[in-house]
Write a protein that binds this DNA or RNA. Structure first.
Lengths: 152, 152
DNA sequence: GCTGATTAGATCGCATACGATCTAATCAGC
DNA sequence: GCTGATTAGATCGTATGCGATCTAATCAGC
């Protein structure tokens, strides 16, 4: 390993820590807004998908939010207990779980979008700057994820 | 709210989800590398700070990794049980907890840096591109964090 | 149409995050 | 030098993430 590079390898210059700490900071920003809706941040992320699709299989939902059944099953059961979604087995394929947003769930859409916009404004970025940042971060994520798959 | 903007408010364009999902993807990339060291990703982040400082108060450590005592206390106790760090009360101020890395802890530094470099390479970014991305993400994080403080 | 492989979810255990709250030590200001 | 405020950590409860593993349903290929 190059010694000069090694000397520079500090937390405050690492992209991984920037993403890690930014994600936590964003979550803290959302908390008071989402508290009013009775949602946690991961629950909010799931609801974002449902506001778009109304009905979706758990598998497709898992792909979009990039979480697995071991995380999603308990989370979705909580959303069901809050009567924001319904969970039902698919008739054609009993393995599949269909998730559907309820009226109460859809009623939160506007407030949820307001929260997302509030964060966007709080970043201090322009719309273009934020989208550029977002796309580059997604590209880095996809590149890294490819390495994870290959290893598996 | 502008209707056109609202229609575009989907998970796949949100900076917050990009950071959230990228952070998870990075953590998944690290897992096999950190497994060999017997570390989790948050433990690795703490060790990164200790490789730089050797000795630091818990408060200063908490500031750097942006976590609080309720998260750090159990994590540090685990690192202590692994004999990678020591925890001791400060003589001058008994409230303060001094954290010091052990020889065994320092011995991991090179492998840890290798892991961080491996991720950096996996992102597919150039060194400059990555630093630019990192700095813009930190700036967004700082802007957002300022809003959280103001509200508190 | 049988059987091994695959797939979709669920369950369990461990390790974070973090709000709320507690304790002990130190500080501030009179 | 006393006392209320502040500070540094610790503890507890809830909600993720995720590896490992399990079950049930479907598919593949003969």
């Amino acid at each position: 390993m190059n010694d000069d590079i090694a000397k520079q390898l500090r937390l405050d210059v690492l992209l991984c820590f920037a993403a890690y700490s930014a994600s936590h900071a964003f979550s803290r920003f959302y908390r008071p807004l989402l508290d009013e809706l009775g949602l946690t941040y991961p629950q909010f992320i799931v609801m974002m998908v449902l506001w778009e699709h109304q009905r979706i299989t758990m598998k497709a939902l898992a792909d979009q939010v990039m979480l697995e059944s071991n995380t999603l099953t308990p989370l979705l059961k909580k959303l069901e207990a809050l009567e924001l979604i319904t969970r039902s087995r698919n008739r054609d394929d009993e393995r599949v779980l269909d998730i559907e947003v309820t009226k109460a769930g859809m009623a939160m859409k506007l407030d949820g979008q307001r929260a997302a916009l509030a964060l966007a404004e709080a970043t201090g970025e322009t719309l273009e700057g934020m989208l550029d940042l977002q796309q580059r971060l997604v590209k880095a994520r996809e590149n890294v994820a490819r390495h994870v798959e290959k290893a598996a």
